[in-house]
């Protein structure tokens, strides 16, 4: 409705459109380039002669007869057993999301509905916890976990990721719950529900958008984590990201960098899909904390 009145003078419009185009290029190009390059041989993607080779695939054609090759993917997924770390990632992320949301909705609801002073202090405490670098926490876990013999297992990493995730989850769900009128659960309680029934039967059904958005961010945290999974999981239990980190060194020596490139592209693909389908939720989640908090 404001569009017509806001028209910019031409030079400014050109400048700002150009700037946006430049930014989109900067944001997207590395990904497009790497996806494209992952189907080439190393001599093309890391060409000593000209990066034009990477586009045309000169050496790839010379080596394999076609401009595209799946060798990198074959090497990573089959030879280097990237597949098992993919399964580990699925187990870890799904568990983290489910447990985080269960704990987070309960806690966030309590924080949003209690009028007492200590909720404020709990939220502040969560903020301080949120600021703790993950690696410092990891350095606190290692020795006790060794001693208790629970180091290296997936459940350990899962509960640690859940805990690290809680401060953020609590803040986010707290602000979502605040946006749901108190009248709703109160009328449920007057109608005959206990507090928990009101939460389950009445509040959660209208909370789905908030729960999904928060779940997305829990997923991202678990999926993107490096510090915790790299330090707390034993070799066979490793998830994708530490797996990539651990075979970086060896593949470089063996001349199989393309394995790593293929693995990196494989690990990024699910995130692409995620943004494609949940762009609106991600944007609203990022702003929820800012606008309300």
């Amino acid at each position: 409705m404001m569009v017509t009145k806001r028209r910019q003078p031409l030079p400014l419009a050109v400048l700002s459109t150009g700037f946006v185009l430049l930014w989109v290029f900067m944001a997207a190009f590395p990904f497009i380039w790497t996806v494209w390059g992952s189907f080439k041989v190393e001599q093309d993607f890391f060409s000593r002669d000209s990066w034009w080779f990477a586009i045309e695939g000169t050496r790839t054609i010379a080596r394999t007869g076609s401009a595209f090759t799946g060798d990198g993917y074959y090497g990573a997924w089959v030879l280097r057993d990237f597949f098992s770390s993919v399964i580990n990632t699925v187990i870890v992320t799904v568990s983290v999301v489910v447990v985080s949301l269960t704990f987070g909705t309960l806690g966030g609801y309590a924080l949003a509905r209690s009028g007492y002073r200590y909720t404020f202090w709990l939220l502040m405490l969560a903020l301080v916890f949120r600021a703790m670098p993950h690696i410092t926490l990891v350095s606190g876990y290692l020795l006790p976990f060794f001693e208790m013999n629970i180091w290296g297992y997936m459940p350990t990493a899962i509960i640690v990721l859940v805990a690290i995730n809680q401060p953020f989850t609590l803040w986010m769900l707290h602000s979502f719950f605040l946006s749901i009128p108190k009248d709703l659960d109160e009328s449920a309680m007057v109608d005959g529900c206990s507090r928990f029934q009101a939460f389950r039967l009445v509040v959660i059904p209208v909370m789905w958008p908030g729960v999904i958005t928060t779940g997305l961010f829990s997923f991202l945290l678990a999926y993107n984590d490096f510090a915790v999974t790299a330090m707390l999981l034993s070799q066979p239990n490793q998830t994708m990201v530490p797996k990539i980190a651990s075979f970086l060194g060896t593949v470089q020596q063996e001349g199989n960098v393309m394995f790593a490139v293929a693995a990196v592209v494989s690990a990024t693909a699910p995130l692409f899909v995620l943004v494609l389908f949940f762009q609106r939720q991600i944007v609203s989640g990022l702003t929820a904390g800012a606008v309300k908090g």
């Binding site: 944001a27 490096f226 980190a245 690990a267 990024t268 692409f272 943004v275």
Partner: peptide
């Protein structure tokens, strides 16, 4: 625009 932020930092 979201891609650079959403991508795994190490990746």
């Amino acid at each position: 625009s979201l891609l650079p932020m959403i991508v795994t930092p190490l990746v």
